[in-house]
Amino acid sequence: MSEDLAFWLSYITNGKHLTWYASFQFTIFAAVFGGTLAVIFGLLGATLKNSRFLPLRLIGTVYSSIVRGVPDVLFFLFFPLAFEQAVEWFIAGQVCTPEMLAAQSAAWPPCKEANWFLGTPEYLVLASVSLGLVYGAFATNVIHGALRSVPKGQLEAARAYGMSASQLLWRIHIRQMWVYALPGLSNVWMLIIKATSLLSLLQIADIVLWADRLGAPNFLPTVGLVHDDWRWRYYLVLFVFYILVTLLSERVFEAIMRRAGRGILSEVRH
């Protein structure tokens, strides 16, 4: 029994498994960075949507409705690829000579020197930015709604105290907005967590990719433990992992909402 235990313990702490555990950093990084960007883009989008200048208001509205109108996967794949191409196109304009352009046989990049190689860190940042862009559109709607739910009296009182427009916005409007935005933002955060499972689509060796590699059937004793297809077990672990993260986030958001709701209209708190 104890030998069994020791065996399994050494199995789940072998090099490959440790790499799997280490790859959780990518997921966590994407979730945290993507979430932060989503709030920033959401604030930006809501400000645009509230703008008094029509073109800006249009940009805000178009951003929040178009991005939500297409699947998140599509944008998630499109943005990094498009960004990479745009950068390569820009570099090509700087470095490519006619001879180089003539020598290039592939469709892209314009010349070999303009190629921009993307490693895991670059893809991770791009993936987080596209998560931020996609869910920023959701956050835009949430924050836009929250900004409108702040009681008018509060803003009027601030104006009566002689606050300038920017003071009013930053000290009163956005401060009080959070209470109304938090339930919606908590939903957006859950979506971001779930979307981090898509990182492997951008060639990042994330938890999903490693679960697939570790669970794949192995018939060579030299490579490690001989086992048949164990993928479903590894995916089950990820399934449970995501449920636990959701559970934990719910608890944390409840605590934050309780704290943020102190001293503000009691009907907001349940």
Partner: peptide
Amino acid sequence: GSPLFIQFFMLYS
């Protein structure tokens, strides 16, 4: 509470 992507992988495997 879990991603559809993982559900696909899990049930398919």
